[in-house]
Simulated assay, not measured.
Amino acid sequence: MNSAASPAEVASQTGAALVMIFAIALTGCTSNECTDSICGSNNDKGSIAAGEQTPAARVNTSYLADLIRKGPFSEPLPKPVKVTGMKDVLIADSSPRIDAVAVELDWPSEYDPFEGFDGPNGHIETYRAKADAAKRSESRYNTLRKQYKDFGEIQGTTKGFFIFANGEIIAGGTRGYVYVEVYSFTNANAYIPLATGTVNSMLKYADKMTALATDS
């Protein structure tokens, strides 16, 4: 049986992770092959002829929040990160979210920065309006940029970003009705693809749940 990749081996993926996080920031597309459902107008096949109208699909955001919470989380994560479950999480701010759920993450003990480390963490927040999710991401982006400016510049945009914080990597992103964030990833280049890749997987998971919560 193959053993999990070491942090040193993961380091070679850093450049690809940077490309991915900026792709998220610029287009919102997290697929290797751009599709109509993900990229919309970025794909000619998704265009609508002049004068043609289609009814706007309605997302039941309360149902979306319920689906996200119940799972199961089936999106592949960057190895060796894995999801072990979902649980309640308390977010100390006044954003008008419907729900917030912690995504319990884990990895092999050799990835721990110190003995007794309880693993990386993440959560998904669901909002009734896309604008509210976007505002939440913008607020976090600006807060983190100011709070950790002495540790380096934040990378990306409000749609997808990461920053070296005080002893950890924090990454986040938004699309549609959700904002996601991961934290407690070891503060080293080798862990950038793990943090940004986990954000990417969480956004894909939210995309699938949004499709299920959308009226046809």
Rank of each mutant, 00 (worst) to 15 (best):
N166S: 10
P80D: 03
N166Q: 08
A188G: 00
A102D: 02
E110G: 13
V19Y: 09
N187H: 09
A16S: 12
A165G: 12
I38A: 01
A17C: 03
P72D: 06
I154N: 04
D66E: 08
N187Y: 04
F114I: 14
T214Q: 09
G71V: 05
D44I: 01
G176S: 10
Y177M: 09
I98K: 11
I21H: 00
Y111H: 10
L194Y: 00
T158I: 11
I98G: 14
S94T: 13
E153G: 09
S94R: 10
E75H: 06
P78V: 14
L26K: 03
F164G: 06
L77Q: 05
Y63F: 14
S139D: 15
E52L: 14
S74M: 10
K87F: 12
K204N: 14
I91E: 14
A4M: 02
A8P: 02
A134V: 13
S31C: 06
D44A: 14
T196D: 06
T27H: 01
L105S: 11
P96M: 08
F22E: 00
N60E: 09
M1S: 06
G119H: 03
S109V: 03
D88T: 08
A134H: 10
Y177N: 06
Q53C: 07
I154Y: 07
K149R: 13
N32R: 07
R140T: 10
P80N: 06
D66I: 03
K87M: 14
G119I: 02
T157Y: 14
R128V: 08
E75K: 09
K149V: 14
N43E: 13
C34Q: 11
A25T: 00
A56N: 10
E9M: 06
M86I: 09
F164T: 10
F22R: 03
D112L: 00
K149L: 13
A102H: 02
N32M: 10
A188T: 00
V81A: 04
I192P: 02
A49V: 05
E33D: 13
